[in-house]
Amino acid sequence: MGAALGAAAMTSIVSREPVVWWIFGEPFHAGPTVVCICAVIITRVIIGLQAKGKAQWALDIAITALCLLVATLWVQAQELELLAAGITGIGVGSLGAGIIGLAKSVAGAKVRAGISAFWDAFSGPTTPR
């Protein structure tokens, strides 16, 4: 009887079925999602602690939130396993500020060029009188 109770207790603790959570009516596997979230957070904390100069906590929190969103959506869309989810979280977490910096520099250059062209078109050539 004791062996039967021990076996029954063991089967309730350890399960071979993946844990599926639901958010906004969508199912997702809990294991890869948790691994991905932990990988992004750890990577962003390490990058934040190694940053030189003035700490920009608000910006780092926003980048981390964006990285978490992108990484978890990617993990769920691709139905990744634990290792691939962890690598994805580390990759997205480490590229987070770089992607935003690249987008800012490219978009900033285009906006500056557009404003410059706009002002040049309206100012026209000046002729002395």
Results as ranks from 00 to 15, higher is better:
23 I>M: 10
62 A>V: 08
118 F>Q: 09
103 A>C: 07
90 I>H: 06
51 A>T: 12
126 T>F: 13
26 E>N: 08
123 S>P: 03
34 V>L: 06
127 T>A: 14
26 E>P: 06
81 E>M: 07
96 G>V: 04
23 I>R: 04
119 W>R: 09
79 E>M: 09
26 E>W: 10
98 G>V: 04
91 G>M: 10
18 P>W: 05
3 A>G: 04
41 I>E: 04
25 G>R: 02
68 L>Y: 04
24 F>W: 14
75 V>C: 05
122 F>Y: 15
88 T>W: 05
56 Q>C: 04
117 A>E: 14
55 A>W: 05
26 E>Y: 11
97 A>N: 11
111 V>L: 13
56 Q>W: 11
63 I>K: 01
96 G>C: 07
124 G>Y: 03
48 G>C: 04
18 P>K: 00
83 L>R: 13
96 G>M: 02
91 G>D: 00
120 D>V: 00
125 P>I: 02
10 M>L: 15
35 V>M: 07
65 A>M: 13
123 S>I: 11
19 V>P: 05
110 K>D: 03
66 L>N: 03
73 L>T: 02
91 G>C: 08
122 F>S: 08
10 M>G: 09
8 A>E: 15
97 A>Y: 11
85 A>S: 15
96 G>H: 03
102 L>H: 05
76 Q>F: 09
4 A>T: 15
126 T>W: 15
48 G>V: 03
122 F>A: 05
9 A>W: 15
53 G>I: 05
22 W>S: 07
5 L>D: 15
18 P>L: 01
1 M>Y: 15
117 A>R: 12
99 I>H: 01
109 A>K: 11
7 A>H: 14
57 W>K: 01
2 G>C: 12
25 G>D: 06
122 F>N: 12
48 G>L: 00
61 I>K: 00
126 T>A: 09
116 S>G: 11
108 G>E: 06
24 F>S: 07
71 A>P: 05
47 I>H: 11
15 S>I: 06
48 G>F: 12
93 G>T: 00
117 A>F: 13
63 I>P: 02
86 G>S: 11
62 A>W: 09
3 A>I: 14
37 I>G: 07
105 S>D: 11
114 G>M: 05
79 E>K: 14
99 I>A: 08
31 G>Y: 04
56 Q>T: 05
119 W>Y: 09
27 P>S: 01
100 I>G: 02
46 I>K: 05
34 V>K: 01
65 A>W: 10
26 E>G: 02
18 P>H: 02
86 G>D: 13
107 A>T: 10
53 G>F: 05
128 P>S: 01
47 I>Y: 10
6 G>P: 12
13 I>K: 13
8 A>D: 14
111 V>E: 09
69 L>E: 13
88 T>K: 01
80 L>R: 04
27 P>M: 00
49 L>N: 08
99 I>L: 12
22 W>R: 02
116 S>H: 14
98 G>Y: 12
40 V>L: 03
15 S>C: 03
1 M>K: 15
10 M>K: 12
47 I>A: 06
116 S>A: 14
34 V>R: 00
98 G>C: 06
111 V>T: 11
66 L>Q: 05
92 V>N: 04
24 F>E: 07
107 A>H: 09
41 I>L: 08
122 F>D: 12
60 D>I: 00
27 P>G: 02
13 I>S: 12
31 G>T: 06
39 A>F: 07
35 V>W: 01
99 I>V: 12
21 W>D: 08
28 F>Y: 15
29 H>C: 00
35 V>A: 08
64 T>R: 02
102 L>G: 13
25 G>W: 01
107 A>R: 02
